[in-house]
């Protein structure tokens, strides 16, 4: 019996963001946008979804006069990501 893949992570952009954040201490919005090759609007919506689920934290501040959005993965996010990868492995073994 295979566990269902977490629908929140089983999306290209959200999975991309989580994969980047799992390897980082923290990442700026512009860094995530560049690495995932996404649009600011789409990325912003997907980050909000991950944040609402408690998988990441989003901190908004200012760097000089420029607004700065910093994202970090949470413990809950790490656990969900690990579970997702383990379930994926099961699917592939099948």
């Amino acid at each position: 019996m295979f566990k269902e893949l977490d629908p929140l992570l089983h999306s290209q952009l959200r999975l991309g963001v989580m994969s980047l954040l799992i390897s980082m201490e923290a990442a700026e919005f512009t860094f995530l946008k560049e690495k995932t090759n996404s649009t600011a609007g789409n990325l912003s919506v997907q980050l909000d979804k991950l944040s609402e689920a408690g998988y990441i934290t989003i901190e908004k501040s200012f760097k000089g006069k420029k607004p700065l959005t910093t994202c970090k993965i949470t413990r809950k996010g790490i656990k969900a990501f690990e579970e997702y990868v383990n379930n994926l492995k099961d699917y592939i073994k099948k």
């Binding site: 089983h10 290209q12 959200r14 996404s38 789409n42 994926l88």
Partner: peptide
């Protein structure tokens, strides 16, 4: 990168994760 999941296979997901 689009936010579509219908075509994301297990292999594609793993490839995306390792690439990122």
């Amino acid at each position: 990168m689009k936010d579509e999941n219908k075509d994301l296979s297990a292999e594609q997901s793993l490839a995306l994760i390792s690439g990122m």
